[in-house]
Amino acid sequence: MTMDIALIEAAALPERVKGLRAAGSRLAVISAVALPVAAAGEAPAVELTYSFDKDGALSHLRLTAAPGQKVPSVSGDYFSAFLYENEIREQFGVEFEGLVLDFKGTLYKTAVRVPFAVAAPVKKPVPGANS
């Protein structure tokens, strides 16, 4: 399946988002994936994918937030982004600048801090698994 993904820098995000908003796109989802780390215990970089819907087709903006890097919030343009960004902040530890509704880390109140901020361990394939 082909996906329309534009790789961008965090600094370019607000402008791109403003352009999409002006074109009438709807914010569909913001997803995050923790990228693999070189050594165990390191804080991973987090890949953020912003997906927009225009007339039923999805297009994506993708950027990588290094550990500790602040990403500009898009909640000023798309109000609904506040929920995604608060969630990603709690689960992955990515900080967003300019959140319109900031839960300050109390959205989920999970037992484990930034539970998702561990890259998936690479596992060996299981031979002969059932189909």
């Binding site: 569909a28 989802v29 997803s31 995050a32 994936v33 923790a34 994918t49 997906s51 998936a120 690479v122 596992k123 060996k124 394939p125 299981v126 698994a129």
Partner: peptide, 17 residues
């Protein structure tokens, strides 16, 4: 609903969102 999956060729997915 939007389902996102990413696999790395193993039986375990890297990410499901």
């Amino acid at each position: 609903a939007i389902y996102y999956v990413r696999g790395n060729g193993t039986r375990m997915l890297e990410r499901f969102r």
